[in-house]
């Protein structure tokens, strides 16, 4: 059984946010409009965090795409009173939209703050509604959602591989964010295969995991030349 994982090379990331747009298109993530975004109600399954280092004029921007880390020891899972979020055997942290009653406890207990809540029923301005992906269900209002590692693509590839009586090849499944990344900073694959790109990159001495000391065992590995110290960075203005 595959164990899905992701590697994000921060030294390659340019902060272009193509991943954010691709994810929105692939996963039918609703757009919320100016007014709602001003109220901190924007929804996205992946975000590019931008941190500024140094004092003006000697300023450097650092980018870090953050998405659901699909933690092996996910803090969001035990707190849901109705089992709307659980771990599947392939290591994906799954959100069952139909079961979610909207306590938002999972979002509170996510140290990465990657869970996104539908404060209202979804809505797409014309003509955005014509580009909805038929492979992904639309979530009703009052329901939590988040990155699925594009589980619909995983399942499609598994179906094809099964028909052809073979196992999935490395690189055969690509989530929308990895596919869209012009710098190829995002790599997705099976970490149970020691020869997959994800496994090889994870062994790099540049590898680290986000907030690893919390013991959440994230499945997303970041690569960075110097270690990422989130406490020494300042968030952009207005935050």
């Amino acid at each position: 059984m595959s164990q899905w994982a992701m590697v994000i090379d921060l030294d390659r990331c340019t902060g272009c946010e193509a991943c954010v747009v691709a994810c929105r298109a692939e996963n039918n993530v609703p757009t919320r409009g100016e007014e709602e975004c001003a109220r901190d109600r924007h929804q996205s399954w992946i975000r590019v965090e931008r941190y500024l280092e140094g004092e003006f004029p000697d300023v450097k921007a650092r980018f870090m795409p953050v998405l659901c880390q699909h933690c092996d020891n996910a803090p969001c899972e035990p707190v849901c009173p109705v089992y709307a979020t659980y771990h599947n055997p392939e290591g994906l942290n799954i959100q069952v939209y139909n079961r979610c009653v909207g306590t938002r406890y999972c979002a509170n207990n996510c140290p990465y703050t990657v869970r996104s809540f539908n404060f209202f029923a979804p809505h797409w301005d014309e003509p955005l509604s014509y580009q909805l992906n038929p492979d992904v269900s639309i979530r009703p209002g009052g329901v939590m959602e988040k990155c699925t590692f594009c589980v619909q693509r995983v399942q499609k590839a598994q179906g094809i591989a099964k028909d052809e009586k073979r196992s999935i090849r490395d690189g055969e499944v690509q989530p929308a964010c990895a596919q869209a990344c012009p710098a190829e900073a995002i790599v997705f694959g099976d970490r149970s295969d020691p020869e997959s790109r994800v496994s090889r990159l994870s062994r790099s001495n540049r590898a680290f995991k986000l907030l690893e000391d919390l013991g959440t065992q994230p499945r997303v590995v970041y690569l960075k030349n110097s270690s990422w110290d989130d406490t020494s960075l300042s968030a952009p203005k207005g935050k």
Partner: peptide
């Protein structure tokens, strides 16, 4: 009142359901 879908609050009740779904007793909310 605080739920996203308040009309489904009874899903927290451990009632016998034909789908054998139970609430999650590991959750402090339970």
């Amino acid at each position: 009142v605080h739920l996203g879908r308040p009309w489904l609050f009874y899903w927290l009740v451990p009632y016998p359901s034909e789908r054998m779904i139970w609430p999650n007793f590991r959750s402090p909310l339970m």
